[in-house]
Write a protein that binds this DNA or RNA. Sequence first.
RNA 1: GCAGGGAUUGGGGAGUGGUUAAACCCAGCAGACUGUAAAUCUGCCGCUUGACGGCUUCGCAGGUUCGAAUCCUGCUCCCUGCACCA
Length: 437
Amino acid sequence: MTTNPEFTNVAEDLEWRGALFDATPGAAHALATEKIRCYNGFDPTASSLHIGNLVAIMGLVRLQQYGHTPIALVGGGTGMIGDPSGRSNERTLMSVAEIDDNVEAIRLQLEPFLDFKAKSNPARMVNNADWLRTTELLPFLRDVGKHFTVNTMMGRDSVKDRFGRDNGISFTEFSYQLLQAYDFLTLFERDHVGFQAGGSDQWGNILGGVDLIRRIHGADSAGRPRAHGIAYPLVVDSNGEKFGKSIGGAPTLDPGQTSPYKLYQYFLNVSDADAVPYVKLFTLLNQVQIGGLAEAVTAEPQKREAQKTLAEEVTRTVHGQGGLNQALKITQAFFGGDISALTADEMEDVLEGSSMAEVSRNQLSGDGIRFSELAVNAGAGKSGGDVRRTIEQGGMYLNGEQISDAGRMVSTEDLVEGRLLVIRRGRKNYSLVKLAD
RNA sequence: GCAGGGAUUGGGGAGUGGUUAAACCCAGCAGACUGUAAAUCUGCCGCUUGACGGCUUCGCAGGUUCGAAUCCUGCUCCCUGCACCA
């Protein structure tokens, strides 16, 4: 980690990185003059965070760098209701067990980013299930509900958008905004948390909380609001596409779902126009370092200095040095030379986490198994026809050798060191087939 | 409940008796070019086959017909009015 002394406060830093979309009046001032506590919520809608969450995560990291106290909130309570923001349709409710599993998974993913042992400003993790699940309806309606008018609630974009739609919006999701505001209020009262950060899609929810706190607690002695919010921009690429759309959905932070290699590759392949903005948003590199990269992109774009740095930095922060090493090793193996030069051990190591299948010795004995069938089993194609077409277009390889016939039989003779087969589809998709014992 | 409209291949959306595995767009996949980029270009994009072809698809179930995504009947779900309830 690079500690960053070049800006006098985190607001300036975020601003420079293009990571500040909006902030409540006085927020920047407070960030510059006080040591504050700021929370950021993460929805347990999936079992893993994805790279879209990185902006928010890095936001907490940067806050901590500047001496503020970051608090990561996992939404074990709000997840039971579902945030209508950005959704065109009503959510399907998840089971409590599923929510709790996701909460736990996300908690584990967030931990490595933050320093929970810092002396003056240790990070903290909270779960709003702890208070929301035990909140009683009537007191809630009297104490919290009274501060909201339905008129305002209906004016929210996330709600308004749904009025015009086929399925409308349920009362359940309509009430979501109260919950998130109540979260902020709870943390404010209980833990003196005066800041909430989140993506721009959360801006309305953040303001809801700021507003609720103001209604209940008023302004401070100097007449300034007691609670503030900041919002990060929605990251889009240079084509205006939402960041994170890629082959097979948004890359996740879970190495089981998106291997370090894949994550590395995702960032390595970012376009020139996006490279520097992404470095700013997703890494802790400082102005000087990033300035150098910007020059490199202009002078020698083909070297892809910025992309390489971006991919390395992100992979290291997400998966550690070990994950990065693995990603680099695979990259070198696949793009440096001929993979058929690798030993079986190396192949196995390198392909750890990519799609994998097993074949029995039986299937390979005699004439063996048709390549197309094997490829489908290994996840290198969705059907025999799909594999055949790809072969016709010259996109299938077995152990580094191009396949020209879908009917080619694969037998024990093809095994690398008698135990492995490597199928490659296209430029960079590999599948491993192991011989079952 | 009544009346009207709708349900098509991942998404959007054509198609109203055969020439339709089903236009077109998006997404996706492969190839070329390149810098493992962008843009562009080419091919593919239900299952199966070396190919000809075969098979299964247009909400569900039946029927009419030589032949149906297209016509009829019933059912399910959705939308829009009206009504009922309050």
